[in-house]
């Protein structure tokens, strides 16, 4: 059942690096992260990698496998062609720290810019009443494990460093949508317009719904269809978003 696989792992740091070749044993049922751990234990004790739960629940071991953004713990070796080399590289949209570890502080900075949940006035702890069908959508978005693969793959920032200051990325636009759809969020009463904020502060208009984020989401959250498009549609000032404007024109003509 075991075989020797050819791995090419990016090794280096902020000053540069390169792919390093390894031949390493693969056993039945293993995932890419198992192989990276085997390399650490045998021939590369200092190979840097983030990981925690090894079960697709914490979102730590994000990387690119043969160029595709994935969780290493959820990528089974049996899905990869044993005859081809397996290329493991760090996420491209974020600065490299070392080997497979990147500096993801961009995401934590963006998280702070989204206004938090506003508890509704006059409703005390224990008094919250919400129906299951009304919380389903927010719950879908709260499945997010913050692996940041959607942030990494989104073309608005993937090769456009200059867009980072003005664009929150799919994960945090989805966070805005989640709060906007929360049945008891008191933002509006507190004078916070989440829809306008999405447009003006978080760069919702940059998103042109190519669904790259949805494709890489390991939690299978329909980020584009369920969060970003509805948020665009709910945004107060539609004319700022040419795509929605165009969409509405086309629909009207049909």
């Amino acid at each position: 059942m075991s075989y020797d696989a050819h791995f090419k792992v990016w090794r280096g740091d902020a000053d540069g690096g390169s792919l390093v070749d390894y031949t390493v044993t693969v056993n039945e049922g293993e995932v890419v992260l198992d192989i990276i751990h085997r390399l650490q234990a045998t021939e590369a004790a200092d190979l840097a990698v983030r990981w925690n739960c090894k079960a697709g629940k914490c979102g730590s071991c994000s990387a690119e496998i043969n160029g595709r953004p994935r969780l290493m713990c959820m990528t089974r070796m049996s899905l990869l062609d044993p005859a081809e080399p397996v290329v493991v590289t760090p996420m491209r949209a974020f600065p490299v720290v070392r080997d497979l570890v990147t500096d993801v502080s961009f995401n934590y900075a963006k998280a702070r810019e989204v206004p938090s949940f506003v508890p509704p006035a006059g409703v005390g702890p224990g008094e919250y009443r919400m129906q299951q069908e009304d919380v389903g959508r927010s719950q879908e978005f709260r499945k997010c494990i913050e692996c940041f693969l959607c942030q990494n793959t989104c073309h608005v920032v993937r090769d456009h460093e200059e867009n980072k200051p003005v664009f929150a990325g799919p994960r945090f636009l989805m966070r805005v949508a989640e709060l906007d759809m929360h049945p008891l969020d008191g933002a509006a009463e507190a004078g916070i317009d989440r829809k306008r904020g999405a447009q003006e502060d978080h760069g919702l208009g940059y998103c042109n719904i190519t669904k790259c984020c949805t494709e890489v989401c390991p939690e299978h959250i329909k980020i584009t269809d369920n969060a970003l498009i509805p948020l665009k549609e709910r945004a107060v000032d539609r004319k700022y978003d040419p795509l929605v404007w165009l969409g509405s024109k086309i629909r009207r003509r049909v």
Binding site: Q40, A45, D46, V49, V97, D99
Partner: peptide
């Protein structure tokens, strides 16, 4: 190796 992100 060195001290930067060194799991060993």
């Amino acid at each position: 190796g060195h001290r930067q992100f060194n799991p060993g």
